[in-house]
């Protein structure tokens, strides 16, 4: 489990876009560096990210090396009814982590 900070407005207007922001604590090791002994440091990045809202997929992203450590993701979502954002990401070790945030539409 890595640390994640999610920023989503608690209440949003129906049909109006709102911002979802995520900070994920992750080294995002590119796989192109060598350590002090000259050994290659294995790649370790978050390679895929999916966000769903009440079972509707709203964003799917493949991530690549050359993204900074502790990546920041930000995207806009519109909602017609209250529900839950589910954000899942997978890293190179195959670790799957899921975070959720609830949104109230008014």
């Amino acid at each position: 489990m890595v640390r994640v900070l999610i920023s989503v407005p608690k209440r949003v207007k129906r049909g109006e876009a709102f911002d979802v922001k995520l900070l994920i604590s992750h080294p995002m090791e590119s796989g192109q560096r060598r350590d002090a002994m000259g050994e290659a440091i294995p790649r370790d990045i978050i390679n895929s990210f999916v966000c769903t809202y009440n079972d509707d997929e709203v964003l799917r992203a493949d991530l690549f090396p050359a993204i900074a450590a502790n990546p920041f993701l930000s995207f806009a979502v519109t909602a017609e009814q209250s529900g839950t954002l589910t954000m899942t990401f997978i890293d190179d070790h195959g670790v799957v982590q899921t975070e959720t945030a609830s949104v109230t539409v008014e």
Binding site: R3, L5, S7, L23, N70
Partner: peptide, 14 residues
């Protein structure tokens, strides 16, 4: 300026 984009808050959270 935006606490949601400031990676320092990952440490603050800890």
């Amino acid at each position: 300026d935006d606490d949601a984009s400031n990676p320092g808050f990952l440490w603050v959270q800890q």
